[in-house]
Nucleic acid binder design. Structure first.
Lengths: 229, 229
DNA sequence: ACGCTAGGTCTACGTTGTAAACTTGTCAAC
DNA sequence: GTTGACAAGTTTACAACGTAGACCTAGCGT
């Protein structure tokens, strides 16, 4: 009944492998994802993994594909193009948010994986329907997606340090470093130290990030159209 | 006369070390920067480096600081705040552009290194003078700088592969992958394949990226101000 | 019944970061 | 001068990593 029965336990499943690799990455960061460790978690010899992944990059790519596969694209509707675009990009970010330490892996898989291609095509549809040329849509879409990935990977608090005591320590060190610099020379940074270290609310962080991207797209579009006239 | 004379050759200079480490990174990527290799280039034992850097992260941080130190901030003037901001951000990008493979290292050094702090403070000055609250300026500035770093690190063509034959090969593979997907299902991606693989002009790539960021900032500002009313 | 092969194992190699103990060149103080 | 002491380079060693290559071996198609 289960994919792993008592005696057939030796049958490895690449999807399962990618799944537990992702768990490791979520918990301890990408560097902790190791062939040997992943093998051990599946009670198998390290070299066994190479029957399912050609090398470690291939494994990491599988993690990336997995993240992209979690995207739940909204159905097309009659909203204005930029609202729909925002919804698509939000779906992308929502898929990455649970895995800030692994989100980087999606970048080079967007134009390869099924789910990534679907999102990219939808993005370009909406951009061109808004008035971008195909080429401009490609470049604008590309950078927008990159920015959103970065938004997730640099989400404050997701950086590293699995256990809360080390994380708290790191936070304190950072706070102290900012508190130590001369407010005379860096008045604004000193004033914003708290926000710089840890933004008020994670939801606000993401909505502001999304606003920046979408507002940028709209602004560039009107610039391009005015310059054409 | 020179910093390294015949017999005093044994005196290592941390700045020189970071400089050649950067050269390695530029030529072959960050993974090629290795304690042993860097030591060998300075005719020294690997462990010698640890007298000047507490560990490898410390070395990488020094590279990041070096990049930030190359920023040539423009003098304040009477231009509108957003124009001046664009100039500051352009100075940042200009400092990173020669080193796309190492630009990532600046992210965690901006709020630590002298040059990074100077730029961050200037950025926040201009954002607040434009009308952002201090906290909003912090979050907006943070993400803008992140996006610009990403703009540089993902600059097409700078990805990897030192020698031109391997790079050409990789390009061909990518091109083939995009050409192989069904244009029926992905019409826009297929149409934009060339642009997606390699944008028309590097300068246009950067100016469009900068436009996106600055337009985003302006757009978010007016959104925030309207919502306050 | 027989071989083929998919999917494991075992062993081994080269590379990496770095801990610990050591040597040595230089300079300050007596 | 002689003598510590300290900064800076050396030596040796280790554990962990990715992975090449040779080797089982269970189970399936013919």
């Amino acid at each position: 009944m289960a994919t792993i029965s008592k005696e057939t336990a030796k049958r490895l499943d690449p999807d399962k492998l990618a799944a537990t690799a992702l768990e490791i990455a979520d918990a301890e960061g990408l560097d902790a994802v190791t062939i040997r460790r992943l093998a051990q978690l599946h009670d198998v010899t390290p070299m066994a993994l190479y029957r399912h992944f050609s090398d470690k990059n291939d494994l990491l790519a599988a993690i990336g594909d997995r993240l992209l596969a979690d995207i739940r694209l909204p159905e097309p509707n009659d909203d204005r193009w930029d609202l729909q675009l925002r919804a698509v990009l939000t779906a992308f970010v929502d898929a990455l948010r649970p895995h800030p330490k692994a989100a980087d892996l999606t970048l080079y898989r967007i134009l390869v994986s099924e789910a990534g291609l679907a999102m990219a095509e939808r993005t370009m549809e909406l951009l061109t329907s808004g008035g971008f040329s195909v080429d401009d849509a490609a470049e604008v879409g590309r950078q927008s997606l990159c920015s959103l990935i970065t938004l997730v990977t640099t989400e404050p608090g997701a950086n590293e340090d699995t256990d809360p005591i080390a994380r708290e320590d790191a936070l304190r060190v950072k706070r102290a470093a900012l508190a130590a610099l001369p407010p005379r020379r860096y008045p604004l940074i000193s004033a914003a130290a708290d926000t710089l270290i840890c933004p008020s609310s994670t939801d606000r962080y993401y909505s502001l990030g999304m606003d920046l991207v979408v507002a940028g797209i709209r602004g560039v579009l009107t610039d391009l159209q005015e310059e054409k006239k």
